[in-house]
Computed example of a mutant assay.
Amino acid sequence: MRRSFYEFLMTLRNADSVEPEAEFAMNAFRDTSFPKQEQNYQKLSEYLELNAGYLPSMTIFDEAFQKYQETDKK
């Protein structure tokens, strides 16, 4: 079974890092409403655009989602 984007994102979590994807992961971890089971780009994007003031740029999400898709192909 394919893992969710949230499960992938948690592999990028690092409290000591200032990298944008690590900060995104930490903030998503703290976001109790984050759609943890979602795999769909459009639904995740919509959620983040409407609810994630902690994400300074959707480019960070786009790059993380691209990595998510690449790891799923392996």
Rank of each mutant, 00 (worst) to 15 (best):
E7G: 06
R30T: 09
Y47Q: 02
E38L: 08
T71C: 09
K43M: 10
L50Y: 05
S57W: 00
L48T: 00
E63C: 06
Y54Q: 01
S4D: 06
T32W: 08
S4Q: 05
E38P: 01
Y41D: 04
F8P: 05
L50T: 04
L50E: 13
E70V: 12
A22K: 02
I60S: 01
Q69V: 12
K43Y: 09
Y41G: 03
L48C: 03
D16V: 08
Y41T: 01
A25Q: 02
M1V: 12
K36D: 00
A28E: 04
A22G: 06
F8K: 02
I60F: 02
E70D: 15
Q37G: 10
F24Y: 07
T59D: 14
Y6I: 03
S45Q: 10
Q37F: 09
R3C: 06
K74Q: 14
A52F: 01
Y54R: 00
N14A: 11
T32G: 07
S33C: 07
M26D: 13
Y68F: 15
R30A: 15
R13H: 12
T59Q: 14
M58R: 07
P35E: 06
Y68P: 08
F29Y: 15
G53A: 05
T59A: 12
F34C: 03
R2M: 11
E70P: 03
F34D: 01
A28Y: 04
Q66T: 14
S33W: 01
F65Y: 15
K67C: 08
S17G: 08
P35G: 07
Y54V: 01
Q66V: 11
D72M: 13
R3E: 09
D31A: 05
N40F: 02
K36R: 15
